[in-house]
Amino acid sequence: MAARIEFLEEIPYFSELSPADQEDFRQYTFEKCFSRNELIIIEGEPSETLYFLASGAVKTFKVSPEGKEQILRILRPGDALNDVAVLDGGPNYASAQAMGPVIVCGILSSDLGILLAGRPTIALKIIRILAERVRQFVSLVEDLSFRDVSSRVAKLLLQYADTEADSQKKMASLTPRLTQYEMAAMIGTAREVVGRSLRFLEAEGIIRIERHRIIIVDYEALKRRSDERLLR
């Protein structure tokens, strides 16, 4: 079954296509469902299909030989899961796993090549998206190298906090819910350290932990904390 048009409209790669072109693309796409914890992409394997997230949340991650997980990105609807491997023809640089029920749109890389031919606006869009990805990874390297854990936790909370506008629109959280383990895997530390940092921020009155919610009480103080760098 071809992917629903409303999913394609959310994909930045194709957002500037005319309705006719979008319909043309749609004919080459299909939908696939995954349940929580299912692996969608496996590190080191080739990708013959480009997947975009249509609904739900997906994490991309790498695992060290000792089994330690480093989350690279949490993907939201519209994000591509494996564009680098599809575009350069190499193996997947990370795995992708569903964080809950997920629907993805797929398009065979051979079909993608046909569809991209003669559509330079999409090629430019892809370059912009990949450039943005480089910025994200540089930011991750900077965080892991120059920020202490408390600063990284603060930055993560700011990054994943629901905005009021989002919440008013959907009456529910749009951003993925994160476990302390996932937070730790995103900022390169242990779960216990994240727990301690959260309790510390709570003791300072910057956040409040209310059962399943972390509420940012003092946004400016959290921002100041996130801007702190390690002096080396």
Partner: peptide
Amino acid sequence: EAVCSTGAILCPYEIVTASTAKYTEHAP
């Protein structure tokens, strides 16, 4: 969640600003 060695128990958190909290309190 902390003691589960297989990741079978998850305690996920929503992260919200104080002004947003009222909208997400009863999210599914």
